[in-house]
Structure formats: structure tokens, C-alpha cells
Simulated scan of single mutants.
Amino acid sequence: MTVQDIRSFNRFYTRVIGALDYSRTLHAPYTLTETRVLYELAHSPRTDAADLRAALSLDSGYLSRILNKFERDGLVERAPGRGDSRRTGVVLTARGRETAVLLDERSNTSVGSLLATVPAGDRPRLAEALRTVRELLSGAEGRGRSPAAGDVVLRGPGPGDLGWIVQRNAALYAAEYGWDARYEALVARIVADFAAGHDPAAERVWIAELDGRPVGCVMCVRDEAPETARLRLLLVEPGARGLRIGDRLVRAVVGFARDAGYRALVLWTNDVLTTARHLYVRHGFTLTAEQPHHSFGHDLVGQDWRLDLREATSREPADGHHTGSATG
């Protein structure tokens, strides 16, 4: 392998995906980098310029010009960051969210057309080759340093991700709390109900991705109570804790629920999940009820928590070192 081998592949791939003329490929007035900034904002609804700069490794002046353009186009709004006036908060407007969804759909269509040219029998080989490239180059890029919060991307679920949510919840809670297969059955029902028919404007799943693999998840669904959303299935992999992933996932749900017009956000958890409960408190949730129960092979104390979205403002957590579950 030589430098020229990699450069040759780069020239080939940028031509294949149309990266040199990305705006024409997607029929949109935005470059590849601008589209990537929109994607990050859409999947992390409450962020600031410093977060974006770290997550995307962009020059501060270049990012500022992109945000200025977005502001002129009515895609974003900026304001002093919560708790620190030196940081600039950035949030998508309704028009910005619509634009991000449209560009994401066009990107999926473009890549889908490319994938359609690959025979079905060759696709597993292609997927394995892509994983190999990611693993090897991620190792070279990250050698000598630990993962950072900026390495984590929040995204929507792709094929297989909903199954991953069920599998990882079952495995982690069996290993860490000894919960039996009845917990896996509960998670499977929650995920199946979402997959069978959810309202994209009012319900969403987020996957936290690190180095091309899922390391966390959370779900926001409509509750039975009027104008109320429910946070469910918050989870962070043990090897990814300490990167504030849980904080970002909860912030994403709170921001989405508020923007979707809900008046309250609720969740059900158990008292043994102490770190998750501390996270909910830091985000302004209050405990409204407790009830002993025997579930998943153990005596537990279930807890109902509530956040009033009309009044509460999320408080900045110190870190995101937790696995927490909000299942009910």
C-alpha cells in the first residue's frame, strides 16, 4: 500500500458519489460540508458552535461563514448558550428541519441508486470492505488518544438498529442487573410498536454512533396522556460511558419534544438505575410517583418522572457516565 494507492482511491470515490459537484447531485444550494453541518444540527437539536466545531473538526471562521449563510436562509437561529454567554447556541428553525430532512432523503436516494448497481451477492463483501477501511483508518487516526465526545454522532436508525436496541438492552441489563428474558420481551414490544407505525413528526429514535458502531440509543414516543411525550429505552454502552452521550441523547429528546409541540415529557424507570436518575434530575425532571413491583426476576421500585416543557430549561450536566434505562 502506497500514498498513491490511497489518493487514487480517493479520486475514484469522490467521482462515484459526486462529491466534487455535491450540490448538483442533491439538487440543492449547499455543499457537502454545509449539508454535514445541517445533518449534525438535525440529530443534536440543542448544541452550540463550539460543539459543532469539535464534532466536525472545522475551522472556526469557516463554520461561522456557514452558520451566517444558514441564518440568512432562515435555517438556523443563534442565541447565547445556556449557562455560558460566551458560547453561541445554534438550533434549526422549522424551515431548517424541513431542509435537513429533504437533503437526508436525497442523500439516501443517491446512495441507494449507487448500491443498486452492486449485485446482491456482492453486497456483504462490500459491507465488510467498508468496515475494514473504517476500522483500520480509525485506528490510525485515533492511535495514542482516547475517544472524545466530539467523535460521537447522533443519527436516526438504519437497517438492523432497532434489533440492536433490543439485543443490547437485554444483554446489558442481564449482565449488570441480572434481569431475565421478560425485560427483553418488554423492550421487543416497545420497539416493535414503534417500527409497526410511528408518526415521524411526533416520534423518533436516536442512535449514538462512535467509530461506525452504535454505542447508545433513546426513543421519544407519544404518550397516552394528551400533549405528552414519553422518553424510552435510554442506553449507553459501558465502553462509551464518560463521553456525555447520555446527556446528548436526553437533550435531543427534550429538544425534539418541545419543538414537536408537546407540553410535557414523562418516563418510567427503576430506583436501582441511580446514575440515570441523576441525569434526569439535572435535566429538570421531577419524581412524581414510586411503586414497588416484582419484574424481570427481581423486587424493584418503579419510578415515574415528569418534565414540564412549558417552563423547564435543561440544566447542563457535569458528565454522561451512565447506562440509564427509561422503559415504560
Results as ranks from 00 to 15, higher is better:
3 V>W: 10
3 V>F: 12
5 D>L: 02
5 D>Q: 04
7 R>T: 13
10 N>G: 04
10 N>P: 06
12 F>V: 10
13 Y>P: 00
13 Y>Q: 03
13 Y>V: 08
14 T>E: 11
18 G>Y: 09
19 A>H: 13
21 D>Q: 12
22 Y>C: 04
22 Y>I: 04
24 R>K: 14
24 R>T: 15
33 T>Y: 04
33 T>S: 05
33 T>C: 05
35 T>M: 02
35 T>R: 01
39 Y>R: 05
40 E>G: 03
41 L>T: 06
43 H>Q: 11
45 P>N: 02
45 P>F: 05
46 R>H: 12
51 D>A: 06
52 L>V: 08
52 L>A: 05
53 R>I: 04
53 R>S: 10
55 A>R: 03
57 S>Y: 08
58 L>E: 01
59 D>F: 01
59 D>E: 09
61 G>Y: 00
61 G>T: 00
61 G>V: 00
62 Y>E: 00
63 L>D: 00
64 S>E: 05
66 I>P: 01
67 L>N: 01
69 K>C: 02
74 G>N: 07
78 R>P: 08
78 R>T: 12
79 A>I: 03
80 P>K: 02
82 R>I: 11
85 S>P: 14
85 S>W: 07
87 R>H: 14
90 V>K: 00
91 V>N: 04
94 A>E: 14
95 R>A: 14
95 R>C: 09
96 G>H: 01
99 T>M: 15
100 A>H: 04
102 L>R: 15
103 L>H: 02
104 D>P: 05
105 E>S: 14
110 S>Q: 14
110 S>A: 15
111 V>N: 10
111 V>G: 05
112 G>W: 13
112 G>M: 12
112 G>S: 11
115 L>V: 15
116 A>P: 14
117 T>E: 13
119 P>E: 12
119 P>H: 06
123 R>P: 11
123 R>H: 09
124 P>S: 03
124 P>Y: 07
125 R>K: 04
125 R>N: 09
126 L>V: 15
127 A>H: 08
128 E>N: 05
129 A>W: 09
132 T>N: 07
132 T>H: 09
133 V>Q: 04
135 E>H: 04
137 L>Q: 07
139 G>Q: 05
140 A>N: 02
140 A>Y: 10
140 A>W: 09
140 A>K: 01
141 E>P: 04
145 R>M: 11
145 R>S: 12
145 R>C: 08
146 S>C: 11
146 S>P: 12
147 P>D: 13
